[in-house]
Each structure stands twice: as C-alpha cells, then as structure tokens.
Design a protein around this nucleic acid. Structure first.
Lengths: 137, 137
DNA sequence: GATAATTTTGTAATAATATAACATTATGAA
DNA sequence: TTCATAATGTTATATTATTACAAAATTATC
C-alpha cells in the first residue's frame, strides 16, 4: 500500500473519536477502548500523537481533548489545509470544524508584520450551538 | 477606591507575570511566589482565576500557561476588548499580544452563520519570533 | 532461514496540571 | 460583641501527560 495503514491501536482510537461529536480526552478514550485491548494511557497518547501528526485527528487545545477530523481520510490521505477553526458548544459539548482561510491568512499576515513566522494557528470558539441557544426552531 | 484592589496573593501572582515575557504555568509561578508567602497550588489558581476573569491576565490555552495583559490596567480598570491573539515563539518562549479585531469578527460571523453564538474566541499562533528566526538584523 | 539490529508495543511508575473538601482567619453587618 | 459572610490556608486528591524500561514484532544482514 502507498502509505502506512493504521495500527490496531490507532484504528481503535480513531474509531472511538469518529463515533463522537464531542471532543474526548485521552482518558475518555482509554475507557472506551479497553475492551479493544488498550490498557494504558501512554498507548492512547501514542496513537493520538500519530493521528494528530497525520491530521486525521485534531487536538482542541482549550479542552485538552481530541476530535476526529471532519474531512474524509480514505485510503489516500488528503489532509486538508491548515486554516481550520473549531466551534465548541459549552452546553452540549459538540465540536464542529469550520474553515476560515481568509481570516487566518489575515491573522498570520498581521503577525508576520512584526517578523513572526507562524507555524501552527489555533482558533477555537467557545459558545453555544444553534441547538442549545434556541436560535433554531 | 472605586473597585477592589488586588489582594496580596493576586498582586504577587500578577507581579510575577509582569516580570516575564514568557508564559508561566501555575507551578512556575508558585516557585516564584513562595518567598512572598504563597505555599499551595490552589492559592495560585485562585489568584489566576480572578486575574483572568478581570482580564488583567490571559491564559494561553495551548500552553496551560499565563501571561500578563499587555495593556495598562491602572487604578481604573480599562479592560481591552476581546479581539486578542497571541504569538508564541516556540524557540525562546516569548509571548506577544496582537490585536486582530477584523479577523476575529470575520471568524465569529462565519460561526454565527450556522447559528453558533460565540462567547470567547481563542487565537494562538505558534512559530518563531523575529529574533529567533533571524528575520531581523 | 537464523540471527542481530531496529522499531513498535506494552507495563509500570511518576511527573505536571488542576480541583475538592474542609479548617482557619479576616471582614463586614446586626 | 456576636453572628454571618467571604477570603485564605491546608491537605488531599483528581486529571492530564510523560519517562523509563521490558517484551514482542519487524526488518536487515548474513
């Protein structure tokens, strides 16, 4: 195969995240994958490190937690570009990925004016989702 | 006085942060304020909670650490508005505050299109500062 | 294919970050 | 003063993350 398939542990962790709309902490995940054979935190953290590096999973910095990437990552890896933000509902916990390329470029350019070279940009919005705020029907 | 002055512990923690360009963790701070009489983590966390709530200090979510606000907070509290981003040099650790109101408004508006009501927006850029990247003289 | 070298996975322990529960002291109200 | 409230201090513990090393699997070399 062209690139590496996921190991059993990586697949277990990824499946667990895919099954949830909320961000899960490493220990949340651990609880859910014990029956799959994972026994220790470090096994979860190792899987997460790989999945985050390959952009199949995102870390939510403001929660110390993780979500599966909303994009398709089939046999061929097509990692989306960097300009991603997250909305986090502080009522129900649902995390959604939104794409904000223009705004992120604006921010990066502003930082670059002072000579800063951005590498990784974290954008996370806490608030209330449509369901919880009642702004829907 | 018009509003509350800081307590001794709050002042100790704030002074400690003001003396540093880098973000400090609660335990970094604890080490530095022991001689001032603070003995336990919870005392630092309580001071930080107050200082963050009153916007005199910012929490850097991607570092689990804290920096003093770059703006003046004299006798009269003049908390700046929300649209703040941070550049974080992963080489030297220096954290700088930059103002990105337009971009943040753009992001918030994009989120609002899906019915999300933003409350608090985290924007943190990791990378290399002018000094460390050699982009200065 | 056997064997050594390398990498991956597992186990145990512990470090780093954060909060809970409750005792004590200080402050303000009656 | 006396009681009520709030702030501070102490101890213990919960939560998040990593280190160190052992065992097993994989790969390279002979």
């Amino acid at each position: 195969m062209g690139h590496h398939a996921l190991t059993k542990n990586q697949q277990l962790v990824l499946n667990c995240l895919k099954a949830n709309e909320c961000a899960l902490t490493a220990y949340d995940i651990l609880d859910m994958v014990r029956e799959g054979g994972i026994r220790a935190p470090v096994q979860v953290y190792r899987a997460l490190e790989f999945l985050v590096t390959t952009r199949v999973v995102h870390r939510i910095e403001s929660m110390n937690a993780y979500v599966a990437c909303a994009h398709e990552h089939g046999n061929e890896d097509t990692p989306h570009n960097n300009a991603v933000a997250f909305t986090i509902c502080d009522d129900c916990g649902v995390v959604s990925e939104i794409s904000v390329p223009a705004a992120e470029r604006t921010i990066d350019e502003l930082a670059e004016k002072s000579g800063f070279i951005p590498d990784r940009t974290v954008v996370e919005l806490h608030g209330h989702c449509a369901n919880c705020s009642g702004s829907m029907g």
